[in-house]
Write a protein that binds this DNA or RNA. Sequence first.
DNA 1: GCATGATACCTCGGATTCCGATGTATTCGT
DNA 2: ACGAATACATCGGAATCCGAGGTATCATGC
Lengths: 126, 126
Amino acid sequence: MPVSQELIKGTVVPVVLALLEDRARYGYEMVQAVNARTNGALVWSEGTLYPVLHKLEADGFVAAEWRDATAKEGGRPRRYYTLTRAGRRELKRRSAEWRTFATAMGEFFGRVRANNGPTTTPGGVR
Amino acid sequence: MPVSQELIKGTVVPVVLALLEDRARYGYEMVQAVNARTNGALVWSEGTLYPVLHKLEADGFVAAEWRDATAKEGGRPRRYYTLTRAGRRELKRRSAEWRTFATAMGEFFGRVRANNGPTTTPGGVR
DNA sequence: GCATGATACCTCGGATTCCGATGTATTCGT
DNA sequence: ACGAATACATCGGAATCCGAGGTATCATGC
Protein backbone atom coordinates (compact mmCIF):
# COMPACT_ATOMS: atom_id res chain seq x y z
CA MET A 1 0.00 0.00 0.00
CA PRO A 2 2.59 2.59 0.89
CA VAL A 3 4.24 4.38 -2.00
CA SER A 4 7.98 3.82 -2.37
CA GLN A 5 10.25 6.30 -0.71
CA GLU A 6 11.77 7.11 -4.06
CA LEU A 7 8.69 9.05 -4.97
CA ILE A 8 8.12 10.61 -1.58
CA LYS A 9 11.56 12.09 -1.63
CA GLY A 10 11.40 15.76 -2.33
CA THR A 11 7.78 16.15 -1.35
CA VAL A 12 8.30 16.37 2.39
CA VAL A 13 8.98 20.09 2.36
CA PRO A 14 5.97 21.12 0.29
CA VAL A 15 3.66 18.84 2.26
CA VAL A 16 4.87 20.27 5.57
CA LEU A 17 4.17 23.76 4.30
CA ALA A 18 0.72 22.70 3.14
CA LEU A 19 -0.04 21.12 6.51
CA LEU A 20 0.78 24.38 8.24
CA GLU A 21 -1.34 26.49 5.97
CA ASP A 22 -4.42 26.59 8.15
CA ARG A 23 -3.05 26.13 11.64
CA ALA A 24 -0.01 25.41 13.79
CA ARG A 25 1.06 21.82 14.18
CA TYR A 26 3.81 19.90 15.93
CA GLY A 27 6.08 17.36 14.35
CA TYR A 28 4.74 14.15 15.75
CA GLU A 29 1.26 15.27 14.78
CA MET A 30 2.34 15.83 11.19
CA VAL A 31 3.74 12.33 10.87
CA GLN A 32 0.39 10.88 11.86
CA ALA A 33 -1.68 13.38 9.91
CA VAL A 34 0.10 12.50 6.68
CA ASN A 35 -0.35 8.82 7.26
CA ALA A 36 -4.04 9.24 8.09
CA ARG A 37 -4.99 11.71 5.39
CA THR A 38 -3.44 9.63 2.63
CA ASN A 39 -4.79 6.32 3.88
CA GLY A 40 -1.32 4.99 4.36
CA ALA A 41 -0.05 5.91 0.91
CA LEU A 42 2.47 8.38 2.29
CA VAL A 43 4.42 7.22 5.32
CA TRP A 44 6.91 9.48 7.01
CA SER A 45 9.55 8.57 9.50
CA GLU A 46 10.47 10.94 12.29
CA GLY A 47 14.09 10.69 11.34
CA THR A 48 13.19 12.37 8.10
CA LEU A 49 10.79 14.97 9.38
CA TYR A 50 12.67 16.56 12.24
CA PRO A 51 15.77 17.54 10.30
CA VAL A 52 13.49 19.01 7.64
CA LEU A 53 11.64 21.09 10.23
CA HIS A 54 14.92 22.41 11.58
CA LYS A 55 16.05 23.38 8.14
CA LEU A 56 12.78 25.13 7.37
CA GLU A 57 13.13 27.07 10.58
CA ALA A 58 16.73 27.99 9.81
CA ASP A 59 15.63 29.16 6.39
CA GLY A 60 12.96 31.35 7.92
CA PHE A 61 9.98 29.60 6.39
CA VAL A 62 8.51 28.47 9.68
CA ALA A 63 8.62 29.73 13.26
CA ALA A 64 8.64 27.41 16.24
CA GLU A 65 7.29 27.76 19.73
CA TRP A 66 7.20 25.43 22.72
CA ARG A 67 3.83 24.82 24.30
CA ASP A 68 3.01 22.66 27.28
CA ALA A 69 0.83 19.69 26.60
CA THR A 70 -1.86 20.95 28.99
CA ALA A 71 -1.49 17.88 31.13
CA LYS A 72 -4.73 16.47 29.76
CA GLU A 73 -3.25 14.78 26.76
CA GLY A 74 -0.27 13.01 28.25
CA GLY A 75 3.16 13.68 26.92
CA ARG A 76 5.97 16.15 27.03
CA PRO A 77 5.89 19.73 25.75
CA ARG A 78 5.33 20.12 22.06
CA ARG A 79 7.08 22.29 19.56
CA TYR A 80 4.49 23.98 17.40
CA TYR A 81 5.37 25.28 13.97
CA THR A 82 3.66 28.04 12.04
CA LEU A 83 4.27 29.54 8.61
CA THR A 84 6.10 32.83 8.39
CA ARG A 85 5.32 35.29 5.65
CA ALA A 86 8.24 33.91 3.66
CA GLY A 87 6.85 30.46 4.37
CA ARG A 88 3.57 31.37 2.75
CA ARG A 89 5.36 32.62 -0.31
CA GLU A 90 7.36 29.41 -0.39
CA LEU A 91 4.18 27.37 -0.10
CA LYS A 92 2.75 29.17 -3.10
CA ARG A 93 5.88 28.50 -5.08
CA ARG A 94 6.05 24.83 -4.12
CA SER A 95 2.38 24.35 -4.73
CA ALA A 96 2.67 25.75 -8.24
CA GLU A 97 5.75 23.64 -8.81
CA TRP A 98 3.90 20.52 -7.79
CA ARG A 99 1.11 21.22 -10.24
CA THR A 100 3.59 21.78 -13.04
CA PHE A 101 5.30 18.55 -12.15
CA ALA A 102 2.10 16.54 -11.89
CA THR A 103 0.96 17.87 -15.24
CA ALA A 104 4.27 16.95 -16.84
CA MET A 105 4.09 13.45 -15.41
CA GLY A 106 0.55 13.14 -16.67
CA GLU A 107 2.06 13.33 -20.12
CA PHE A 108 3.46 9.87 -19.50
CA PHE A 109 0.96 8.32 -17.16
CA GLY A 110 -2.33 9.30 -18.59
CA ARG A 111 -5.13 11.21 -17.01
CA VAL A 112 -5.51 13.11 -20.26
CA ARG A 113 -5.45 10.38 -22.86
CA ALA A 114 -5.35 12.65 -25.89
CA ASN A 115 -4.01 9.73 -27.81
CA ASN A 116 -5.84 7.13 -29.85
CA GLY A 117 -2.88 4.86 -29.46
CA PRO A 118 -2.34 1.84 -31.60
CA THR A 119 -0.96 -0.62 -29.14
CA THR A 120 0.95 -3.02 -31.28
CA THR A 121 1.74 -1.29 -34.51
CA PRO A 122 5.30 -2.35 -35.27
CA GLY A 123 5.93 0.60 -37.56
CA GLY A 124 7.91 3.58 -36.48
CA VAL A 125 11.58 3.25 -35.86
CA ARG A 126 13.53 0.52 -37.43
CA MET B 1 10.43 26.80 -15.70
CA PRO B 2 12.06 23.48 -14.93
CA VAL B 3 10.83 21.61 -11.91
CA SER B 4 13.40 21.14 -9.15
CA GLN B 5 15.40 17.95 -9.20
CA GLU B 6 14.08 17.09 -5.77
CA LEU B 7 10.74 16.21 -7.31
CA ILE B 8 12.13 14.55 -10.40
CA LYS B 9 14.10 12.15 -8.26
CA GLY B 10 12.49 8.81 -8.22
CA THR B 11 10.49 9.34 -11.38
CA VAL B 12 13.25 8.63 -13.86
CA VAL B 13 12.70 4.88 -13.82
CA PRO B 14 8.92 4.93 -14.36
CA VAL B 15 9.23 7.56 -17.08
CA VAL B 16 11.86 5.54 -18.93
CA LEU B 17 9.58 2.53 -18.83
CA ALA B 18 6.69 4.61 -20.10
CA LEU B 19 8.81 6.00 -22.93
CA LEU B 20 9.62 2.49 -24.07
CA GLU B 21 6.06 1.28 -23.98
CA ASP B 22 5.28 1.86 -27.63
CA ARG B 23 8.68 1.61 -29.30
CA ALA B 24 12.41 1.22 -28.86
CA ARG B 25 14.42 4.30 -28.03
CA TYR B 26 18.02 5.19 -27.32
CA GLY B 27 19.30 7.15 -24.36
CA TYR B 28 20.12 10.45 -25.90
CA GLU B 29 16.74 10.44 -27.58
CA MET B 30 14.97 9.96 -24.27
CA VAL B 31 16.70 12.93 -22.72
CA GLN B 32 15.40 15.16 -25.46
CA ALA B 33 11.98 13.53 -25.67
CA VAL B 34 11.34 14.19 -22.00
CA ASN B 35 12.43 17.77 -22.31
CA ALA B 36 10.26 18.32 -25.37
CA ARG B 37 7.14 16.49 -24.26
CA THR B 38 6.99 18.32 -20.96
CA ASN B 39 7.77 21.74 -22.41
CA GLY B 40 10.89 21.98 -20.34
CA ALA B 41 9.26 21.08 -17.03
CA LEU B 42 11.27 17.89 -16.71
CA VAL B 43 14.94 18.15 -17.57
CA TRP B 44 17.20 15.13 -17.45
CA SER B 45 20.94 15.05 -17.49
CA GLU B 46 22.78 12.27 -19.25
CA GLY B 47 24.76 11.58 -16.13
CA THR B 48 21.53 10.55 -14.49
CA LEU B 49 19.98 8.60 -17.31
CA TYR B 50 22.76 6.27 -18.42
CA PRO B 51 23.39 4.66 -15.05
CA VAL B 52 19.64 4.15 -14.71
CA LEU B 53 19.48 2.42 -18.09
CA HIS B 54 22.33 0.12 -17.14
CA LYS B 55 20.59 -0.79 -13.92
CA LEU B 56 17.29 -1.47 -15.69
CA GLU B 57 19.15 -3.72 -18.08
CA ALA B 58 20.91 -5.53 -15.25
CA ASP B 59 17.57 -6.02 -13.54
CA GLY B 60 16.10 -7.51 -16.69
CA PHE B 61 13.47 -4.87 -17.27
CA VAL B 62 14.91 -3.70 -20.57
CA ALA B 63 16.98 -5.27 -23.31
CA ALA B 64 19.59 -3.33 -25.27
CA GLU B 65 20.85 -3.62 -28.79
CA TRP B 66 23.39 -1.66 -30.81
CA ARG B 67 22.26 -0.25 -34.12
CA ASP B 68 24.23 1.78 -36.62
CA ALA B 69 23.09 5.32 -37.16
CA THR B 70 22.44 4.74 -40.85
CA ALA B 71 24.94 7.42 -41.80
CA LYS B 72 22.16 9.80 -42.69
CA GLU B 73 21.65 11.20 -39.24
CA GLY B 74 25.21 11.90 -38.17
CA GLY B 75 26.60 10.42 -35.02
CA ARG B 76 27.91 7.24 -33.61
CA PRO B 77 26.05 3.96 -33.19
CA ARG B 78 23.07 4.04 -30.89
CA ARG B 79 22.06 1.69 -28.16
CA TYR B 80 18.35 0.98 -28.44
CA TYR B 81 16.37 -0.19 -25.46
CA THR B 82 13.15 -2.16 -25.45
CA LEU B 83 10.93 -3.44 -22.67
CA THR B 84 11.18 -7.06 -21.67
CA ARG B 85 8.16 -8.93 -20.39
CA ALA B 86 9.29 -8.23 -16.84
CA GLY B 87 9.70 -4.62 -17.89
CA ARG B 88 6.08 -4.42 -18.91
CA ARG B 89 5.00 -5.81 -15.59
CA GLU B 90 7.21 -3.29 -13.87
CA LEU B 91 5.73 -0.48 -15.93
CA LYS B 92 2.26 -1.50 -14.81
CA ARG B 93 3.35 -1.55 -11.20
CA ARG B 94 5.10 1.81 -11.40
CA SER B 95 2.25 3.35 -13.26
CA ALA B 96 -0.23 2.31 -10.58
CA GLU B 97 2.14 3.52 -7.92
CA TRP B 98 2.36 6.91 -9.54
CA ARG B 99 -1.39 7.28 -9.58
CA THR B 100 -1.63 6.34 -5.92
CA PHE B 101 1.06 8.84 -5.14
CA ALA B 102 -0.47 11.63 -7.20
CA THR B 103 -3.83 11.04 -5.56
CA ALA B 104 -2.29 11.19 -2.11
CA MET B 105 -0.50 14.42 -2.94
CA GLY B 106 -3.74 15.81 -4.28
CA GLU B 107 -4.99 15.64 -0.73
CA PHE B 108 -2.64 18.49 0.06
CA PHE B 109 -2.40 20.36 -3.20
CA GLY B 110 -5.84 20.22 -4.67
CA ARG B 111 -7.02 17.49 -6.86
CA VAL B 112 -7.07 18.06 -10.54
CA ARG B 113 -10.65 16.94 -10.80
CA ALA B 114 -13.19 14.30 -9.96
CA ASN B 115 -13.64 15.18 -6.35
CA ASN B 116 -16.83 15.93 -4.52
CA GLY B 117 -14.92 17.61 -1.78
CA PRO B 118 -15.20 16.81 1.86
CA THR B 119 -15.86 20.53 2.14
CA THR B 120 -14.48 21.46 5.46
CA THR B 121 -16.00 24.65 6.65
CA PRO B 122 -14.20 27.51 4.99
CA GLY B 123 -12.37 29.85 7.23
CA GLY B 124 -10.94 27.49 9.71
CA VAL B 125 -10.71 23.82 10.19
CA ARG B 126 -11.55 23.22 13.78
C1' DG C 1 7.82 5.88 44.54
C1' DC C 2 8.72 3.37 40.75
C1' DA C 3 7.92 0.57 36.66
C1' DT C 4 5.56 0.76 32.42
C1' DG C 5 3.55 2.72 28.38
C1' DA C 6 2.27 6.49 25.45
C1' DT C 7 3.67 10.69 23.74
C1' DA C 8 7.18 13.62 21.64
C1' DC C 9 11.56 15.35 20.33
C1' DC C 10 16.11 14.57 18.43
C1' DT C 11 20.70 12.70 16.37
C1' DC C 12 23.70 9.76 13.94
C1' DG C 13 25.96 6.24 10.55
C1' DG C 14 25.62 4.10 6.49
C1' DA C 15 23.50 3.67 2.23
C1' DT C 16 21.69 5.52 -1.79
C1' DT C 17 21.14 8.90 -5.33
C1' DC C 18 22.21 12.80 -8.31
C1' DC C 19 24.57 15.47 -11.49
C1' DG C 20 28.27 18.58 -13.39
C1' DA C 21 32.43 17.80 -15.37
C1' DT C 22 34.92 15.23 -18.25
C1' DG C 23 36.25 11.92 -21.77
C1' DT C 24 35.70 9.14 -25.98
C1' DA C 25 34.01 8.18 -30.63
C1' DT C 26 31.69 9.03 -35.14
C1' DT C 27 30.01 11.79 -38.93
C1' DC C 28 29.07 16.12 -41.53
C1' DG C 29 29.96 20.63 -43.48
C1' DT C 30 33.33 23.71 -44.88
C1' DA D 1 41.76 19.18 -41.10
C1' DC D 2 38.82 21.27 -37.98
C1' DG D 3 34.70 22.43 -35.35
C1' DA D 4 30.09 21.24 -34.28
C1' DA D 5 26.63 18.00 -33.39
C1' DT D 6 25.48 13.56 -31.97
C1' DA D 7 25.85 9.77 -28.62
C1' DC D 8 27.54 6.89 -25.01
C1' DA D 9 29.85 6.56 -20.67
C1' DT D 10 32.15 7.27 -15.92
C1' DC D 11 33.48 9.47 -11.71
C1' DG D 12 33.72 12.12 -7.28
C1' DG D 13 31.62 15.37 -4.37
C1' DA D 14 27.27 16.66 -2.49
C1' DA D 15 22.87 15.99 -0.89
C1' DT D 16 19.35 13.11 1.06
C1' DC D 17 17.01 9.40 3.69
C1' DC D 18 15.87 6.57 7.35
C1' DG D 19 16.27 2.77 10.88
C1' DA D 20 18.01 2.53 15.16
C1' DG D 21 18.79 4.38 19.22
C1' DG D 22 18.52 7.91 22.81
C1' DT D 23 16.23 11.44 25.86
C1' DA D 24 12.38 13.56 28.26
C1' DT D 25 7.56 14.18 30.19
C1' DC D 26 3.27 12.66 32.03
C1' DA D 27 -0.43 9.24 33.56
C1' DT D 28 -1.62 4.92 35.42
C1' DG D 29 -1.23 0.89 38.27
C1' DC D 30 0.85 -1.27 42.01
